[in-house]
Nucleic acid binder design. Structure first.
Length: 426
RNA sequence: CGGAAAGUAGCUUAAUUUGGUAGAGCACUUGGUUCGGGACCAAGAGGUCGUGGGUUCAAAUCCCAUCUUUCCGACCA
């Protein structure tokens, strides 16, 4: 991609939002645009990061046998009435509806009903179990208060997986499998996850855990000791001590430390709540009709994006100047800059990277070198490749934006280096 | 929905207290000089002061209403 073709404009950053400086950079530079409270458009660069995140999640869910599907976003009201969740979601004001003169449709805030329905007459025998369906798609929630830019919007991208098992024992196995996939996926994004005991809210079920990343910008407070933890909201639950002991084997919370965190995912062992209320069942080995033991597992992809930006800001002279995203989620690996004399060489290098399938940006504008470097950082590109007067022909200076470290290597070595990186990631 | 703030150019904002021709920095356009860390000079363009009403000779400024946004609470990925 060439900067001149991207419809990008270099913007000098002004004073940043103190709570969410990273996302404020996105806003000030036009990488996201706000249309209303909790409503944002993404430009191409942020969209590419979103795509990388999706790919990573899918890869790890496919590895444990997840099957990708797609549920409708417009869902008939009757579907929500069939599980008896319609009234709650409407009364809480969370669910948005679209009305015609004949029908009313719900804009999907989640998809337990839709997926349970999907399994109806499809998963009919114990021989087909276990099975897990997942999707990554838009969700709509008319949150009473949106906040933190991408952290909580009215419209957001969510990964949601729904598992079907024969019994509670199998459900627990699936639950642990998915949970491990979460840890693997987030590790690949350089985010270290913490799972904590949580309240299961309006989703229901027996136990649930929130998947947290420690962050000062987080909305939640957790109690955690490096191994076990809980969301402080659990303490408001009736009989919380009994709940913690029974579901999570947590008996003593006095030694846990209080930390700020952001919830990126939430996993639930639902049991038979939906299969019973919607009466969707399968035939067991003994020819009896039994309800599915279900689990549901979500990841706020939009929120992951927000955290990736907030957790990867870089500073110069104590001032936040941009981001250095991990290669696994970077929109582009390199940002190529040259002086006038080496323009042709830069174009050639750019084409060689493209031929090697290395995602790369060429800055072909007439901006000053300082401005170009700033732009690379504002876009979150991890490496800047400079063809200038401090290196010889066929040499390139590589700057790693995370720590400003520099190395001079031959153009050929640079190409094979990033080719290797590309292969190790995909 | 309760509590608190704020809406002036694409962004950050001044002028509001004390009513009197809306001003700046960045960004943008043109010309010139620069060209390895957000260059400089000159010229230029860009505003229904959120919206509606009221008071007044006169309203960005005072009053009323309304819309929107942000923050704290309940809710959530």
């Amino acid at each position: 991609m060439k900067v001149s073709k991207m419809g990008l404009k270099s913007v000098k950053l002004t004073e940043l939002d103190k709570m969410y400086p990273g996302q404020d950079i996105l806003l000030q530079t036009g990488q996201i645009k706000q249309y209303g409270s909790g409503l944002y458009a993404y430009d191409n660069v942020v969209l590419r990061v979103e795509d990388r995140v999706e790919e990573i999640i899918k890869k790890h869910m496919d590895k444990i046998g997840g099957i990708e599907v797609e549920m409708p976003l417009l869902q008939p009201s009757e579907l929500w009435k069939s599980s008896n969740r319609y009234d709650k979601y409407i009364n809480d004001g969370v669910m948005l509806t679209v009305k015609t003169d004949k029908n009313e449709f719900c804009l999907a805030p989640t998809a337990e009903e839709a997926v349970t329905k999907f399994a109806e007459n499809r998963i009919t025998s114990y021989k087909q179990l276990p099975v897990s369906f997942y999707q990554i798609g838009k969700k709509f929630r008319n949150e009473i208060r949106n906040r933190g830019y991408l952290y909580r919007g009215k419209e957001f991208l969510m990964f949601d997986l729904y598992s079907f098992d024969k019994n509670e024992e199998d459900l627990n196995k699936t639950y642990d499998l998915v949970k491990q996939a979460y840890f693997d996926a987030f590790k690949e994004m350089n985010l270290s996850l913490v799972s904590v005991a949580a309240d299961n809210g309006s989703i229901g079920g027996t136990r649930s855990e929130e998947m947290m990343v420690l962050s000062e910008s987080g909305e939640d407070t957790i109690l955690y000791d490096g191994k076990v933890g809980l969301n402080t909201e659990v303490l408001e639950k009736e009989n919380y001590q009994e709940y913690l002991k029974k579901e999570y084997n947590i008996t003593d919370i006095s030694n846990l430390s209080k930390l700020k965190a952001i919830e990126l995912g939430h996993i639930f062992a639902l049991g038979t709540k939906y299969s019973e209320s919607m009466n969707i069942k399968y035939v067991a080995e003994d020819n009896s009709i039994k309800p599915f033991y279900m689990g549901c597992y979500g990841i706020g992809v939009s929120r992951v994006l927000g955290v990736l930006y907030e957790n990867n800001v870089i500073k110069a002279n104590d001032e936040i100047v941009g981001f250095s995203l991990p290669l696994s989620v970077a929109p582009y690996y390199l940002y190529i800059i040259s002086n006038k004399e080496r323009e042709a060489e830069a174009l050639k290098l750019y084409e060689q990277f493209l031929a090697a399938k290395v995602p790369v940006i060429l800055d072909d504008t007439n901006d000053s070198i300082g401005k170009k470097i700033r732009n690379a950082k504002v876009l979150g590109i991890p490496y800047i490749a400079i063809l200038g007067n401090s290196t010889n022909e066929n040499e390139v200076e590589l700057e790693y934006t995370k720590d400003d470290s520099k190395e001079v290597i031959s153009v050929d070595d640079a190409i094979s280096k990033f080719k290797e990186i590309k292969n190790s990631i995909c």
